[in-house]
Design a protein around this nucleic acid. Structure first.
Lengths: 189, 189
DNA sequence: ATTTTAGTAGTCAAGTTTGAATACTGGAGC
DNA sequence: GCTCCAGTATTCAAACTTGACTACTAAAAT
């Protein structure tokens, strides 16, 4: 499940029709390179591929005042469905980067759904850590596999960090912080 | 820099000539899936690619008593050079998985070199964290980028965990734990 | 006796990532 | 006026990953 796919769909959902370079800029502004690498080529590939699958449609090739012409893309109906699916999946991913991206885009789901997904993620993290602890005894001899107890300890610490952070995030969401898609449907007047 | 390349070269260095499936089994025994995913296809691709680059050579197709025939591969001179280079690089990588693999294979370098590389890694981690802290002020408003302060905090914690673990590893190496390639050159009698 | 299942060993097409290259514009320096 | 540089916007080949599939053997289940 390519993380770039999710990011491209997510930015298009948040920002509306955009071209490849605009997506790059936006993701740079999010400081995305801190937790995952996103090269220009991957973005353009995702745009082409998603278009081929009718998840996106081209909206003309506007020529701006500066630089060469650029192609705008926008989400289609099925693209929006795909986005929601990928986003839900990412909340349950065991990969740090995917969870981070899911949280970055969480405003696209209703508050209650995000809470459910994050709670499920915490449970997964706990199960995963329990699994690691079960594994430790098998590796107490430092023979066959290289340094596995030390590496398992490192991995366990990372999981613990993720769990603590996610639990704190859940608390903040429960106490009304952040803004979600289903809230304030009528902002005017 | 594919992590699979490094793993394939590393296992061949540690275990001598092996076939694809043996590499899979070995990595499974290391519990590699805990911190990175390695699919069979990637291993076979790496074997083919490295052979094309003369980093490996095929050593006949032995047909074992059980199952179909299998192709043995062994490291060449230039493959060993490649391995050492990739290994040194990985010690300095900003990616968790790469650092973990580097440590798993650290016995292939001399103790003093491993210490140098790990100390450099710690300095990098410190610099990286300093960079993150500088970034925080720019994002105190929750407008443009989604939830960046929270995500930066998560990332920072992960970096801190890595740093602590690496520092403890350095201490253990300094106090004589683990065994390295340059030690006990004469083990017999 | 025969079907199922589990383990061994590997291939392949489709999708994805990477790094380098291209092409065009506007402004800074000479 | 001309060259060089930085920013804008994208393409492409080569390498890599993924998931599903093939094929063969041995032992367990029916």
């Amino acid at each position: 499940m390519s993380i770039v796919r999710l990011l491209v769909l997510g930015v298009l959902e948040l920002k509306g029709p955009s071209h490849g370079y605009a997506l790059q800029r936006e993701l740079q502004a999010w400081n995305i390179e801190a937790w995952t690498k996103v090269k220009p080529g991957s973005i353009y590939h995702a745009l082409k591929q998603l278009t081929k699958e009718n998840k996106l449609s081209e909206v003309g090739t506007e020529s701006s005042t500066e630089g060469p012409g650029r192609t705008l893309y926008q989400l289609t109906e099925s693209g929006l469905t795909e986005f929601k699916q990928l986003l839900e999946q990412s909340f349950l991913s065991t990969e740090q980067a995917e969870l981070a991206v899911a949280v970055a885009l969480m405003q696209c789901l209703p508050r209650s759904r995000v809470l459910e997904l994050l709670q499920a993620q915490v449970q997964q993290l706990q199960a995963y850590q329990a699994g690691l602890n079960q594994l430790q005894p098998d590796f107490t001899e430092r023979d066959s596999a290289p340094h596995t107890p030390d590496l398992l300890a490192l991995w366990g610490s990372h999981l613990q960090v993720s769990q603590n952070w996610t639990e704190q995030l859940i608390t903040r969401i429960q106490t009304g912080e952040y803004c979600f898609v289903d809230e304030r449907p009528k902002t005017s007047t």
